[in-house]
Design a binder for these strands. Structure first.
Lengths: 128, 128
DNA sequence: ATAGGGGTTACAGTAACTGGAAGGTCAAGA
DNA sequence: TCTTGACCTTCCAGTTACTGTAACCCCTAT
């Protein structure tokens, strides 16, 4: 399959797939004409990457996950550790965002939002 | 005040302050020796930016907020609209992260995390 | 022969900094 | 006076994970 076909099947832009090759995440074969040629395992690998990225894993984490996936002698503990660390990051980010959300919601709710200049949002930003 | 003093008072790295000048967010005066010289309004403006950034506003939003702040004829509606849009973004991000968190939590919970290779996390990534 | 719809590379840009190099300035101490 | 150390300056490169664009090649159908 050519890159366009694979892009359609994985739902990722062809550009992203080329990028993944650039950074050494994948290593597709080449046709005589220089076109990238994907087989089922190649597609599978991209789908794996797509799902890992959808779970928010960084590219470097994806690289490690892929390595673990392909290592039959892996310890599931290593995978779990990676996932747990990532989960912690996500939870940290969520709580950060929730703090912002709460503050912003309060501010937005107290702002008249009319033609007058007086604004509690700006007042808050101006004076903490 | 020199940049170091301001950095201490605002809690932001001097580097960031220089960057804010680079992109035209602030315009500090200069001493005869070329050092940036901050007065109280300059400090105030940086503090404003710091708080807006802490609420997750993008630099471009910060630029707009600052302009609104300094425009005595602003309509609070404009500020509110900005804040509401940002709030929507935050809420979208939170719900995205929560989806990831839920999936990951499930996966992590079902993974033995021992020396054996068998791993539900990898299984999930491999087959959706 | 040509038009279109593939594909290829390489380079630049995004957001918001951060790090590092190379060098100027200033106050204090020997 | 000289030097040391802590400041400050500018400029350039790197970060993350792509995305956009240009210039060009390839293949098939008309």
């Amino acid at each position: 399959m050519n890159i366009g076909e694979i892009a359609k099947r994985t739902g990722m832009p062809a550009k992203t797939i080329r990028y993944y090759e650039d950074i050494g995440l994948i290593r597709p074969h080449r046709d005589a004409n220089g076109y990238r040629k994907f087989d089922e395992p190649g597609f599978h690998k991209l789908a794996f990457l797509g799902r890992a990225r959808a779970l928010g894993f960084s590219i470097e984490d994806c690289r490690k996950l892929l390595a673990l996936y392909e290592d039959e002698t892996r310890a599931s503990a290593d995978v779990k550790k990676l996932a747990q660390e990532h989960l912690r990051q996500i939870e940290g980010k969520i709580s950060q965002l929730r703090t912002m959300q709460e503050t912003l919601t309060n501010l937005v709710d107290t702002c008249a939002g009319d033609h007058r200049p007086d604004c509690p949002i700006l007042r808050d930003l101006a004076s903490g």
